[in-house]
């Protein structure tokens, strides 16, 4: 339901009484409303939906998820799971 894209906050400012900012998405910048992530700091990542930052992206959790998948891979290898997918 909800296209949400991670981006990096590069600027924070007030506009018409609302916290706004610039967010960089892999090389393109867009003005985004930051009112719902008051704790966010420049350099941190957020997830943006229809021009609004809806949450701070927790970088540590992101790394944990990826590390967990790698661990599964190592386990599979040790258990000798047949690799059916070929390129």
């Amino acid at each position: 339901m909800c296209l949400g894209i991670p981006g990096k906050v590069t600027e924070i400012y007030e506009q018409q009484g609302i916290t706004m900012g610039k967010v960089d998405f892999g090389g393109i910048q867009k003005e985004i409303c930051l009112a719902y992530v008051p704790e966010i700091e420049v350099g941190e990542y957020t997830i943006v939906h229809v021009g609004f930052a809806i949450t701070r992206l927790d970088e540590e959790s992101a790394m944990e998820t990826l590390a967990l998948i790698d661990e599964l891979g190592i386990l599979e290898e040790e258990l000798g799971v047949p690799d059916e997918v070929s390129d």
């Binding site: 339901m1 909800c2 949400g4 409303c33 939906h49 229809v50 021009g51 809806i54």
Partner: peptide, 8 residues
Amino acid sequence: GFETTAPA
């Protein structure tokens, strides 16, 4: 929208 879009 669902709850995601509602704050906007």
